[in-house]
């Protein structure tokens, strides 16, 4: 058994000055950041009219609302709601498919290995970026102005906003593809179109199919929302019932949405595994 050694702190300090004396900037950075974050929070709470009395009276209101929500009851309008749910699913499916169809050719233009010229690619990318920067709800409002109220406006809104997202995702998938197969096609005398068709697409299509399925899933959620501004589907019913304070119907509709989303999640994850195999799903 060895004796515990005397530790010569002075020598250690001399040898590793950085460990013992961290510079003031490093020691103060963390507390300063916390204080700043907290200060902005307090400023925000004051600026946004948070007052405890308002908060608690709202909370008791919310308590009342939740009590009135039980039990969920569709009343006599269950068929209407089922039809609205079907509308929502249709919006998600059609919107996503349209977006994918239009995004595929454009994404080729935005991919570095297809269009090497920066000058050509840059505007395409910025165009896709700015489409993505605008929320689906805003697109829905714009399309309502163009084709009128109803689910068709919803389809177009989802198609446009997903077009931006797909353009970016697809072009990233294309850039990640293996160049050797493309070179092989070129070596055997294929044209540029042949290179894309036989060299790129077989590699990229499973990835794209997976992304499209995932978007159909997440668009079921978005499609429930866009009804709130009048673009059809179950969101329209939900917003109406909230405005007329029919809380039992509201809770029923929310439950319906939850169940539908869970079902779509289940189906599409099964399909995704079938298409690209278990490992490739991130």
């Amino acid at each position: 058994m060895t004796e515990p050694q005397e530790v010569d702190t002075r020598e250690l300090r001399a040898r590793y000055p950085d460990v013992f004396d961290r510079p003031a900037s490093a020691r103060l950075a963390m507390p300063a950041m916390i204080v700043a974050a907290f200060a902005i929070l307090v400023y925000g709470l004051v600026d946004l009219d948070f007052s405890p009395s308002r908060f608690f009276s709202g909370l008791s209101q919310l308590g009342w609302i939740s009590v009135m929500m039980i039990p969920p009851d569709p009343g006599s309008s269950l068929p209407v709601y089922l039809k609205a749910l079907g509308e929502t699913l249709s919006i998600a499916l059609l919107g996503t498919t349209l977006a994918a169809l239009f995004a595929l050719p454009v994404s080729l233009l935005a991919a570095r290995n297809i269009v090497p010229s920066n000058i050509l690619r840059f505007p395409v990318r910025r165009f896709l970026d700015s489409i993505r920067g605008v929320d689906t709800l805003i697109w829905a409002l714009v399309w309502i102005n163009v084709v009128g109220l109803g689910p068709f406006a919803g389809v177009l809104a989802i198609a446009v906003s997903d077009f931006g997202a797909f353009g970016k995702l697809f072009s990233e998938a294309i850039e990640g593809a293996d160049q050797k197969q493309v070179e092989g096609i070129r070596a055997s005398g294929g044209s540029a179109l042949h290179e894309i068709r036989f060299g790129l697409l077989p590699q990229v299509l499973p990835v794209i199919a997976g992304q499209v399925l995932y978007f159909i899933e997440s668009n079921t959620r978005s499609a429930t929302i866009i009804g709130i501004v009048g673009a059809g589907g179950i969101g329209l019913q939900l917003a109406e019932q909230i405005r007329v304070l029919e809380w039992q119907k509201v809770s029923f509709l929310i439950l319906m949405i939850l169940v539908a989303v869970a079902a779509i999640d289940f189906v599409s994850s099964k399909l995704r595994f079938a298409i690209i195999g278990r490992r490739a799903v991130a």
Partner: peptide
């Protein structure tokens, strides 16, 4: 997570003003 944020907002607008 599943109920969209804007649906919560619709309900909260009624409860909290």
């Amino acid at each position: 997570r599943t109920v969209p944020g804007i649906v919560f907002a619709l309900i909260f607008v009624i409860a909290f003003g």
